[in-house]
Design a binder for these strands. Sequence first.
DNA 1: ACGGCGGGTAAACGCGCGTTCAATACTATA
DNA 2: TATAGTATTGAACGCGCGTTTACCCGCCGT
Lengths: 231, 231
Amino acid sequence: MAQAMFEGDDRSTPARIRDAALACFAERGVKATTVRQIAERAGVSAALVIHHFGSKERLRSACDRRVAALIRERKTAVMRSGSGLDPLAVLRDQAGDPPIQRYLARTLAEGTPEVAALVDEMVDDAARYVSEGMERGVLRRSDDPRGVAAVLTLWSLGAMVLHEHVERVLGVDLTGPAETHATNPAYVRPALEILSHGLVMPHWFDAIATASGAGDDTHSGSGSSASEEDT
Amino acid sequence: MAQAMFEGDDRSTPARIRDAALACFAERGVKATTVRQIAERAGVSAALVIHHFGSKERLRSACDRRVAALIRERKTAVMRSGSGLDPLAVLRDQAGDPPIQRYLARTLAEGTPEVAALVDEMVDDAARYVSEGMERGVLRRSDDPRGVAAVLTLWSLGAMVLHEHVERVLGVDLTGPAETHATNPAYVRPALEILSHGLVMPHWFDAIATASGAGDDTHSGSGSSASEEDT
DNA sequence: ACGGCGGGTAAACGCGCGTTCAATACTATA
DNA sequence: TATAGTATTGAACGCGCGTTTACCCGCCGT
């Protein structure tokens, strides 16, 4: 009874239940959400939730597919508009309701096949966009454009999963609406700095790369000490 | 009875229980782990687990503190050895047992105060190391060294949380022992490339930065369209 | 010898979960 | 109007959870 059906709610009952589940999963996580909570939010009985979806697990799967569908739908528009480098751009401006970003932040680490497929698609899209950017001279060339795209995508999604820490450390809520963080320098500025100018000085890069064996695909063990690499 | 006590196990019973819980939490997650599973793994009864720790939640808190302690202990050694730029370096080489990395990967997104404090410390350490690197001319200068360090740390930890996706996409297990991935080019190479050479060409960086408002701390709204920025 | 005490346990308790069931309200077709 | 079928429900079921209880046993000080 917490959120009874509005008169003008034209969604079907299964759709309303699914959206209620989506919101609950996003707020509390899947395991911490009970079927009764979902039912209450959708303004129906717990029995009806099971009647329409068979089980909580299948409802969760329906939510996964719903999120994937919404993102795919939005993706074409975003890529057409030209900012395909940023996987988070696809997630932004989803009008916050249903809360897709928080749902993904909760689900990305849980390893469902639907989400895995979605991540794979994001990497593919990013790879396409990175390659294109390199050909057009916007991005620096690389031997491994797909690797670059993958790392880029995973870093972005990782930051989204850790949004709580990002907010505490930098004061930026990555799961909020775009305008609250897309122009917020606290996160964007350092990220842009790193991605454009780079961080390590070129001279030192060579030393690090050869020492860690990453500068040579057919590297020898190099028997190095504790000196490590990457971020 | 799955893993009864060895004769030569000199750990106290509470310590054995805590380590068993650590392993279970790392493998299955906290909510999915039952007190009885922990008890069985430690070779004791479920009642004894509660007797020693009061509740499952306080046992979990003890695990958090244990992990934090192990990392802090290792930290000084790693920083002394000179590779403080990489927060993952601190997590590596923990001898895999107990599985600290997987525990953190599970816990980083769950928002306990102990882990939050640990992340804050990692950011502080990275900030110190980044500033030092800039002064020594190893790293490129920045107006916001702490922001750079924070983004770096969060990207690394995010990749660790998404280790499952990293492994599927790039074939690198970030939660495994160091030698399996520290020299694996699939992840390290693109990451190093981005961090050293940068990605976006300098000429384009200015355009992006001003368009997104990140190039100016006292920026005007710029009323931009869908064109976004960052990773 | 013995009493108490701390480590340890088996059994049970109560709760809340996902799910099932039998019955009711509603709607459309014949 | 009768009938079939679907949407929806309250109540209950069974299970497994975290936790509690009552009890046991071996050791140590006296």
